[in-house]
């Protein structure tokens, strides 16, 4: 099976541990992620003002590219890209007035009416691949690893684009279990990590991240699993800083769901870009015997 794929900017650089492991893992599941041949940044956040249509242009342009490349469906892996593309798509599908204005503005592009379906890879596992098949293909079960699903904001909110109803975290739980690990629940699974405030109000963002990590520590999880490069930065890469500043007392590394998938499918750990995660992540996998020390 071949599906059209939108990586997003960060997956090409800082979050290769998310993008590359997805492509490699899916190939092992007989799914070819075909990257859009031409694409721009989606804008990362949805425009929330009714008179601010210019910020819908970027995601809509991506959707037009997908349509041109024959995609009835566009797969995303980054949660923020998913959220931004899916919401822009809904505007183009459901709001005739905004659709008209945006199409008129983009006079160099063909008109778009929301034809493409935006899908997050996690939904694809649930709806198309299936947990049974996933379980069958696992070569190195992640036994002994306790993982807390971390959804963040953009996988579930707002409700109309949520991959799962608000407050339910079964999708990632089933995913974790299919990989042979133990799923641990925590109350902050959909609590905001601080998001873009790491740029505007870093202290505020660090407060937000610390609460989640403290909760993760209490839940008994060895690690978090997530799908957003901004969450990963705030919760994983920045964790050393939070620890040094005394904001957290226990280190709980985070992995992208595709990294854990790749490891479980037997992909060489050296190709899972663990060097891009926090230091604690490699140590944990070694301790659990998932990667050689």
């Amino acid at each position: 099976m071949k599906v059209l794929y939108y990586p997003g900017c960060t997956l090409k650089t800082k979050a290769r541990n998310l993008g590359d492991t997805a492509v490699e893992s899916l190939a092992l599941l007989d799914i070819e992620l075909e990257e859009l041949s031409r694409w721009n940044c989606c804008g990362a956040v949805h425009s929330l003002a009714d008179d601010d249509l210019i910020h819908l242009v970027a995601p809509v342009r991506v959707l037009i590219r997908a349509l041109e490349q024959g995609g009835g469906r566009l797969v995303t892996i980054c949660s923020m890209c998913y959220n931004t593309l899916a919401r822009a798509n809904r505007v183009m599908r459901d709001d005739p007035e905004k659709r008209k204005t945006i199409n008129l503005f983009m006079d160099e592009e063909p008109d778009y009416q929301g034809e493409v379906e935006v899908v997050h890879l996690l939904s694809m596992f649930r709806d198309e691949v299936g947990w049974d098949l996933l379980r069958e293909r696992i070569k190195i079960p992640l036994k002994g690893l306790k993982i807390a699903p971390y959804y963040g904001c953009t996988l579930q909110r707002p409700r109309e684009v949520g991959i799962e109803p608000v407050g339910r975290f079964d999708l990632m739980k089933h995913f974790i279990e299919a990989l042979g690990a133990e799923a641990v629940s925590m109350t902050s699974a959909d609590r905001c990590c601080g998001s873009y405030q790491i740029l505007g109000n870093p202290e505020v963002a660090k407060d937000a991240s610390s609460i989640i990590l403290a909760d993760a520590g209490k839940s008994g999880a060895d690690a978090l699993v997530l799908s957003c490069p901004l969450c990963e930065f705030n919760l994983d890469r920045n964790q050393g800083v939070l620890f040094e500043e005394g904001r957290i007392s226990k280190v709980v590394p985070a992995f992208y769901f595709t990294q854990l998938l790749a490891l479980a499918l037997g992909v060489d750990p050296r190709r899972c870009h663990l060097e891009l995660n926090s230091e604690a992540s490699i140590g944990l996998l070694r301790d659990k015997g998932i990667i050689a020390s």
Binding site: N40, C41, G43, I54, H55, V57, A58, R61, M106, E108
Partner: peptide, 8 residues
């Protein structure tokens, strides 16, 4: 650079 809105 990151303020680009892809307006073209």
């Amino acid at each position: 650079l990151f303020r680009c809105v892809a307006c073209n």
